[in-house]
Write a protein that binds this DNA or RNA. Structure first.
Length: 840
RNA sequence: GCGAGCGUGGCGGAAUGGUAGACGCACUGGACUUAAAAUCCAGAGUCCGAUAAGGACGUGGGGGUUCAAGUCCCCCCGCUCGUACCA
């Protein structure tokens, strides 16, 4: 029988479904294991990134099940978001309709992949059954003082009359309208993540199974700095300007003060100073994306104000308004010490300000390192650490400074001026002010009767939706028309999966049993924001006494991107890979036959058309081949390249496996091992044993490509085993069954089918993971490389654990070694069972 | 700009500081076939050498530590992710 994936995949998916074997139930007799992949945005169709992510997760889920864990492996939809509104505008449909139909499509695609989800736990965040709970959570946060309203600056498109997301601003213009984007001040809701900054930072140390790079990024994002605030009094005025610095020790090198354009003092100055006003307007036009802001040329406006230096009586420092000073960080003001800070140096050079070195070095400025202080009065001769302490002490004595800790992390702005998100349950009353919606009036559902013909947020222009009565005084009032940032939904969905309780966000028992997530898997692009918000959310929920857990994810793995070669016509038009054919190392357009330029290998993206549709791949080769290729080539945490030849290779391997098992003679052969073995049999069993060890370790280490490689090696060993008698057949059958169990988490359909062909009863999905057998553990003879001066010159095969003298003697018998050893070696380095190195 | 990561044959990638290139793809030769595909067997980092033995070079570039460096340290180059309203 030929390998027919579409036939067997359907058959076994149906079987798993009928037997409901992936349904998760609380069972206190088994250790639990919660494996979760980041849920997708229902954009319309699954892409290779999803295929990769979910294949990784499914491997873990099935592997842990085989190891005897009670596995929870759910899937759902991150269903609110901007693309649904864009689609609604472009195709005059409703965001909900578009989203739900996408969910249908994508769900059927995921089902074709044979993933071991408990679909009974499926959720969509745009469903009121889901978002009603987060309205309650927000109210809890609000009542606990964790949510507040403050003014914020947004991108405003004057033509569309709408707020633009950063990604909708292209070169300072609205992506649809092309209008120059304005900055507009608006009030929005914020959550006090900064209250938890210290704890979020400290607890990173306890995230033992998170990648170091993610932890480093989060630490840097939180950005704790120890420093000082110093208050400078402004000459001829009662005002002060308070600055923050991490380097109070360089105070004697201060040559100017710089304040943010959004600083209250800047605004005050601009009232009576048109040039200052012009400068602030210039700054407002600058992009507020961090990357643009930092890259922009440093520029400043010299105000008429000066402050006096606290320790240098006759020195006055000019106050500048400078575009590179961020209002959100520290106090929004600094003192500039050009000699020891790159940005200050650039600024001072541009405006010809004094540069006074205060730390001794070899005169290369700016110098950011440590050293002995000079030109610094009472700090002279001290190193940085001492000088920081003393300078703060002296500032304190003067009553103008103190030790201060600052965090770079800002409070989380959760307001979005959009329709397709969870409504924020607040009512504005002209007499009572902002009033939380009473809990018995939840949920506040989105209206369906909307249209996007009117500009701006449909909730604002809706004729009735926002009109309501004040819960306190019953007078006419209006609802908050902002909706939540979609990171709100993704900050707790993993907890909701533990139990789709209709009345509570999560039942205590289910939460306590399943949480935290044991293995979380997703793209590295979420390293900071999503993961940090989720960590914050757990803390906030604990703060309002909903739960008692602070870290949602025990182990984290981040996957790389799926990349593919790009193709362009000579006229610079992108082509899909299936429009291109290769002949003699040259690429041609499949229809026009014109030559095609093969571009760089890049992340698959629709805009560059270098995408391969998973649906097509599954149709051609089946889900198992797609899954196997996803696992076999690259380690999960690195980028991988999709290649046609790679998928072909996987397809060929599964065919080989299929054919091999199909022609295996199993009638009257049992898989009980003989009592004694031939040399060949022993070698094969040894290979099996190493393979079990290696596959287990590689899966535990998340090096699935190595697990695949060793399974392939095992298969090569089994299939090349010569059959001389029935004992050989038994050994082969024994090995093949173990191989099928090992490969099952990767390619579950073919594994089930072959399991059945071998006359096995029951599902392979329910079989236990194989264990190693000590009697086949190690080889007794090993190879030892012999080096001369660190260069490998010979290899000898010796008895294991041979002592050093014997080893040296044997090594010295090698012709090639003697050739290089003219003298007696100066030194002989021997690492037992490892290496011999003669140094001459 | 800042923060983080990555860089190994023609390609994807293996390698507790101890034989660089496991496993696979592509390639070459052979078997089978009327032929092709598929399949099977063999070969293979580059260069020198005879298709051998053996040698030289070789993990983005430059320097260093070490008996020994892909691996550790310093500098540089390139690419990727994030940068707070994309998800």
């Amino acid at each position: 029988m030929k390998y027919n994936p579409s036939l067997i995949e359907k058959k076994w998916q149906k079987k798993w479904n009928e037997l409901d074997i992936f349904k998760a139930k609380i069972d206190y007799n088994k250790p639990k294991y919660y494996v979760l992949e980041m849920f997708p945005y229902p954009s319309g169709a699954i892409h290779m990134g999803h295929v990769r992510n979910y294949t990784l997760g499914d491997l873990v889920a099935r592997y842990k099940k085989a190891q005897g864990f009670n596995v929870l492996h759910p899937m759902g939809w991150d269903a609110f978001g901007l693309p649904a509104e864009n689609a609604a505008i472009e195709n005059s449909t409703l965001p909900s309709k578009w989203t739900y139909s996408n969910i249908e499509i994508m769900k059927s695609q995921l089902k074709q992949m044979g993933l071991s989800y408990d679909w009974d736990r499926e959720l969509a965040t745009c469903n009121p059954d889901y978002y009603k709970f987060e309205q309650k959570m927000f109210l809890d946060f609000y009542k606990a003082g964790l949510a507040y309203k403050k003014e914020t600056v947004v991108n405003w498109d004057p033509i569309e009359q709408t707020v633009l997301a950063n990604e909708q601003v292209v070169d300072g213009r609205g992506w649809r309208s092309g209008a120059e984007v304005e900055k507009k001040k608006m009030k929005g809701w914020f959550l006090k993540i900064s209250d938890f900054a210290e704890d979020l930072l400290n607890e990173i140390d306890n995230l033992k199974e998170w990648p170091d790079r993610v932890k480093t990024m989060q630490r840097n994002w939180i950005g704790k700095s120890n420093g000082a605030t110093i208050s400078f009094s402004i000459n001829h005025s009662d005002d002060n300007v308070e600055i923050f610095t991490t380097r109070p020790d360089t105070i004697f090198g201060a040559t100017f003060i710089a304040i943010s354009p959004q600083h209250p003092l800047s605004l005050k100055i601009a009232k009576n100073d048109n040039k200052a006003k012009d400068f602030l307007e210039f700054c407002e036009k600058q992009s507020n994306k961090a990357k643009d802001l930092e890259k922009a040329d440093k520029s400043g406006y010299k105000t008429n104000l000066t402050v006096s230096h606290p320790f240098k009586k006759d020195v006055n420092l000019i106050v500048y308004i400078a575009n590179f000073i961020l209002m959100d960080y520290g106090t929004g003001a600094i003192f500039g010490c050009p000699a020891h800070d790159q940005r200050d140096y650039d600024f001072a050079s541009k405006y010809s300000l004094d540069i006074i070195p205060v730390i001794k070095n070899n005169n290369v400025l700016p110098f950011m390192g440590d050293g002995l202080h000079i030109n610094s009065d009472f700090l002279d001769g001290l190193n940085t650490k001492e000088a920081i302490d003393i300078s703060i002490r002296e500032l304190q004595k003067l009553g103008i400074g103190k030790k201060t800790v600052t965090y770079r992390i800002r409070d989380w702005g959760v307001s979005r001026q959009r329709y397709w998100g969870c409504p924020i349950p607040i009512i504005f009353c002209s007499s009572c002010g902002e009033v939380p919606v009473p809990e018995d009036q939840l949920p506040i559902c989105l209206p369906d009767d909307i249209n996007f013909d009117t500009k701006g947020n449909p909730l604002v222009s809706h004729p009735t939706w926002k009109n309501t009565k004040c819960p306190k005084c019953n007078r006419n009032a209006v609802r908050e028309t902002d909706t939540f940032d979609t990171f709100f939904e993704s900050s707790w969905y993993f907890a909701r999966f533990t139990d789709l309780n209709p009345t509570k966000a999560f039942s205590d028992e289910a939460f306590r049993y399943w949480m935290p997530v044991d293995q979380y898997i997703g793209g590295v692009e979420h390293a900071v924001m999503h993961l940090l918000y989720s960590r914050f959310f757990m803390r906030a929920l604990k703060f309002v006494k909903t739960i008692d857990l602070i870290e949602p994810f025990n182990s984290l793995q981040t996957q790389g991107m799926v990349c593919h070669q790009t193709f362009k016509t000579k006229k610079e038009k992108w082509l899909f890979p299936n429009q291109v054919t290769k002949e003699n190392n040259t690429f041609f357009h499949i229809n026009t036959k014109e030559e095609v330029i093969a571009g760089r290998i890049e992340k698959m993206s629709k805009s560059k058309k270098n995408v391969v549709d998973p649906q097509q791949i599954i149709k051609t080769y089946g889900a198992d081949t797609a899954r196997f290729f996803m696992l076999s080539d690259s380690p999960p945490n690195r980028d991988m390249e999709w290649s046609d030849s790679g998928i072909e290779g996987s397809w060929r391997f599964l065919n080989k496996l299929w054919n091999f098992v199909n022609i295996l003679e199993v009638e009257n052969i049992h898989d009980k091992l003989p009592t004694s073995f031939s040399k060949q049999q022993k070698e094969l069993l040894r290979t099996l044993n190493t393979t079990i060890k290696e596959v287990t370790k590689s899966i535990d280490d998340f090096h699935f490509n190595i697990a695949v490689a060793s399974i392939r090696s095992l298969f090569n060993a089994i299939s090349s085993h010569k059959i001389l008698n029935n004992d050989d057949k038994s050994v082969i059958l024994y090995n093949t069954k173990k191989l099928l169990i090992l490969i099952n988490p990767m390619v579950p359909h073919i594994a089930e089918a072959l399991w059945e062909i071998l006359n096995e009863n029951g599902l392979i999905a329910n079989k236990s993971w194989p264990i190693t057998d000590r009697s086949f553990e190690e080889k007794d003879r090993i190879k030892i490389p012999i080096q001369v001066n660190g260069k490998m010159r010979a290899i000898i095969k010796v008895q294991k654990d041979l002592d050093n003298d014997e080893l040296e003697k044997l090594a010295l018998k090698e012709k090639n070694i003697l050739k290089f050893l003219n003298d007696t070696p100066k030194k002989v380095i021997i690492v037992p069972n490892r290496i011999v190195n003669f140094v001459i």
